[in-house]
Design a protein around this nucleic acid. Structure first.
Length: 498
DNA sequence: ACGCATTGTCATTCG
DNA sequence: GTCGAATGACAATGC
């Protein structure tokens, strides 16, 4: 690893650990407790084992698999992340020590291996427990993993199979810097083989990555399976530059080192997934969200981007234990509302990460007085206040935009209806006018015919016809019709005019 | 690849 | 002057 990358990793890890500890202590300070799993651990482990056996059968039927049994959960169709089915148990997995005092930081950062995995590339000295506990806690597994995978937990490598900016860890067994614990070389080789095997599979497009153990006796003879796998993640966000997702599954009833072969078995007790992002994911958050001024320089902005990115991803790590969120992110297919859901989810995550006293719905939905009262009742940090007001402003504006667009749409509909009504009215008037013109023309025609018919029947004293050019018929108000000479008629008309 | 529709967000105006 | 609503403009995203 290049030195600058090491420094970046250290710096990034410091921010990550600091944030996690802060969030943890805020949780504890607010009385938040780690959620107990919804099902007992043994029961859940049994379900996992049954599911794993079913998956083994499926893999056997498909005729693939070479020795690694990895079971991932659902592939998040939106982000491309592979989420474990048992992510619900994240809280329990993280709860490695119930008596951990909050002053010492969160279990996540107190855990040496997790800290090593997440925040540093320096080797951590750990002892291998020869545990006989039927249900060892996470720390035990992590200790084991730390021994066999002592360092470089998330060393980025470019996947040469697909020139797609995927980052994969270096084969651990080939590293000269790993400082392997004596006696672990075969296991490390096995791990490297497993990793290469895993890489050789097209696990990018599969929801479940597993390889059957052909010899069931292996499963029984060695009660420990430890699999370190890596998989890549598609660029979740446009600003992602690289992503490393380190997933390892730990299955064990008990750990026995029978021989140097260190065979793996597949007794599933727990599965955990560490999602480490070394990439930048600028969250839709201002720097003000964290109570700091906007960065003055580009380097500061980039560094801030690292901080935001890591915060967000670690929020995911800490908060995804919520089953609803897991379901929301794994079950729902991407739709046009995905952006809205993602945005809302981000706000909710940020709100919970900063331990805001109100839900996002309350933050947006409360009246101004109620909101100010709620804010005033709680002593909040500047960052919390800024986040509260940002969420409220965005939420209010979002609703305003929605109503505005609805009004605009309604107005357009009304205008279209009005235009249609006017068009129909105009057409009716045109038709009526044409009808009237036609009737008037017919009436004139009838009148003309009648006129000439009358003249054709009138005779003077000599029996001569009256000429319509010399005489005219006048209809008086009393109903009588008079035959008048046109000159006299014209003279009388002229005399009656004012 | 491109166009279109939808949605969220920001900046600005208005009452 | 302040605040919230309204709205135009822009960008992101999905189809």
């Amino acid at each position: 690893m290049v030195g600058s990358e090491v420094n970046d990793l250290d710096k990034q890890g410091y921010y990550d650990k600091h944030l996690i500890d802060t969030s943890w202590q805020q949780d504890i300070g607010l009385g938040v407790e780690w959620e107990e799993p919804r099902v007992p651990f043994c029961e859940w482990a049994g379900e996992m084992q049954r599911a794993r056996k079913q998956e083994q059968g499926r893999i056997r039927r498909e005729g693939e698999g070479q020795g690694v049994l990895l079971t991932f959960g659902n592939l998040d169709q939106e982000t491309g992340e592979i989420l474990p089915d048992c992510l619900l148990q994240t809280s329990q997995v993280l709860k490695h020590s119930p008596s951990t005092p909050c002053s010492q930081g969160s279990p996540l950062t107190q855990n040496p291996l997790l800290a090593a995995l997440l925040f540093t590339n320096k080797p951590t000295t750990l002892k291998v427990k020869s545990s006989t506990q039927p249900l060892p806690d996470l720390q035990y597994y992590l200790d084991l993993l730390e021994v066999h995978v002592p360092e470089r937990p998330c060393a980025p490598l470019v996947d040469t199979r697909e020139n797609n900016n995927y980052l994969l860890p270096e084969p651990l067994g080939e590293s000269s810097e790993t400082g392997l614990v004596s006696g672990t070389e075969p296991l490390t080789d096995t791990l490297a083989d497993l990793i290469e095997l895993e890489l050789s599979h097209s696990f990018l497009d599969a929801n479940i990555h597993s390889s059957p153990l052909d010899n069931p006796n292996q499963m029984n003879s060695t009660a420990c399976e430890e699999t370190l796998s890596t998989h890549t993640q598609r660029d979740v966000c446009q600003d992602h530059t690289s992503t490393v997702t380190l997933a390892h599954t730990l299955y064990q009833d008990e750990f026995t080192q029978k021989d140097s072969s260190h065979t793996f078995s597949s007794l599933a007790d727990s599965t955990t997934l560490f999602h480490i992002e070394s990439a930048i994911e600028p969250v839709a958050l201002d720097m003000s969200l964290y109570g700091v001024d906007p960065p003055a320089s580009q380097s500061e902005a980039e560094e801030a981007g690292h901080i935001h990115s890591d915060h967000t991803e670690l929020f995911d790590l800490c908060l995804l234990s919520d089953s609803e969120e897991v379901e929301a992110q794994t079950a729902s297919p991407p739709t046009r509302g995905a952006r809205r859901n993602r945005s809302t989810c981000h706000d909710e995550q940020h709100a919970r990460a900063l331990c805001l006293p109100l839900s996002v719905d309350d933050i947006v939905g409360l009246s101004a007085d109620a909101f100010n009262e709620a804010v005033g009742d709680n002593e909040l940090s500047q960052a919390q206040l800024v986040l509260l007001r940002d969420i409220r402003r965005r939420g209010k504006n979002k609703m305003a935009a929605q109503s505005c667009r609805k009004r605009k749409l309604d107005k357009m509909v009304d205008l279209e209806a009005e235009v249609e009504a006017l068009r129909e009215k105009s057409e009716r008037g045109m038709r009526e006018r044409e009808s009237n013109v036609r009737a008037l023309r017919e009436t004139k025609q009838k009148l003309r015919k009648l006129y000439y018919k009358v003249f054709s029947q009138l005779r003077d004293k000599t029996g001569k016809l009256y000429s319509p050019r010399e005489y005219t018929l006048q209809h008086s108000s009393n109903g009588h019709v008079y035959l008048l000479p046109r000159t006299a008629h014209m003279t009388r008309q002229a005399a009656t005019r004012p």
